[in-house]
Design a protein around this nucleic acid. Structure first.
Lengths: 212, 212
DNA sequence: GTCTATATTTCGATAGAC
DNA sequence: GTCTATCGAAATATAGAC
């Protein structure tokens, strides 16, 4: 039987190196605008050589999608059982989401930026029935679950929006912001946003005056 | 001197119709992935005919950019003088931003979705020195203005993120959400987010406990 | 595993007839 | 104002040598 080639410890396979290069380019330039020529030039060999390691350009994107898919299995299993999470537990769930995001910025940027390209990928079926098996798909399921009051779903969506934007802004407009500071600010903002719907006597239709 | 062709009242010129079609496609499919063939097919004539009305594909995008640029002149002049806006006025400014967004969803979606393509467009210079003359450019200037404390800028950024996401979510995950309801929810969320930094005795370093 | 060379498709853009 | 026909560039992908 074939066995993987022996490599010095800590040295990545060519395939993994290609994926690292592709992840950088797909997040900065976008999947559609990144050409195989660009990837091969950074790798130091020709375009055709890529086809030894991957069957197609889509195949590279799919491999990166699987990297993110693994995250769903390891760290965020709670997000599978949204229905059993009480409102007062939401800030804690958001905290976990913040941690996962901070630890895997590039992978999430890949998803946010290339959502369309990932969507039209032929999904690997079988593991779950509906094919909705990554974190963002599950998030969508919660936010459209009509068993949760719409006002609460909206607030949750706003909270996730802030967290997602925080990720983008950190590497863009707030480059000098340390990860620890960003985490503090995100947690604070999430609690201010979710406070009105996690308080004991929740009034969903809470109104503000139209003008201050 | 040449004069514009006489048209029945309420009938749009071919050029404007092309722009309407292009706006739809650019916001749903993206600028790069939208081909001139696709536009011409919707218009009912050939691809080459487009070149009678526009010099290039970029020229179409530029014309749509000008539509948004006009909004900056008419409705949001306050956003030019960020420095003179006191923190307690921010919710009101955000309210104006919300209104402008709700009234021009498609144009803003065009900007959000095709930010990169718009960025590399040869800008029409002259009107202002730095070429940063549309709403989103000015917004960026505020959020990176180091004269404003970073914590406050972050909170403002979060607020704008919620508003921007609300626009996307409304036409996607919350399709059944009426505009009036969305406006109420956005205003409410903005005030909860800006409350901590608009209160009289503002403490920028306000902390939340790490775990609830 | 990587190379050169090439097939195939799609796109933006132009030329010239009507 | 719109057409047909075509060009040239760039991209994905394949074939076959080394």
């Amino acid at each position: 039987m074939p066995r993987p080639p022996v490599r010095p410890a800590g040295e990545k396979s060519t395939r993994e190196q290609i994926l690292d290069v592709a992840l950088d380019l797909f997040t900065t330039e976008g999947f559609e605008k990144t050409s195989l020529r660009e990837i091969s030039e950074r790798m130091g060999f020709s375009k055709a050589a890529l086809y030894y390691h991957f069957a197609s350009k889509d195949d590279i994107l799919l491999a990166l999608h699987l990297r993110l898919h693994e995250l769903g299995k390891t760290g965020l299993d709670k997000m599978i059982d949204w229905e059993r999470v009480a409102p007062h537990e939401w800030p804690g769930v958001l905290d976990e989401f913040i941690e996962t995001l901070l630890e895997n910025r590039k992978l999430f940027l890949l998803h946010v930026r290339n959502h369309d390209s990932l969507e039209r990928l032929p999904h690997h079926h079988g593991e779950r029935g509906d094919g909705k098996d990554d974190i963002l798909d599950r998030l969508r399921l919660l936010l459209t679950d009509e068993r949760v009051p719409r006002t609460q779903r909206l607030r949750l969506a706003f909270a996730f929006a802030v967290v997602g934007f925080g990720l983008l802004a950190a590497g863009d407009m707030f480059q000098d912001l340390a990860t620890d500071d960003l985490r503090v600010e995100l947690r604070s903002a999430v609690r201010d946003l979710l406070g009105p719907i996690t308080a004991a006597g929740t009034e969903p239709g809470r109104q503000h005056p139209v003008t201050a």
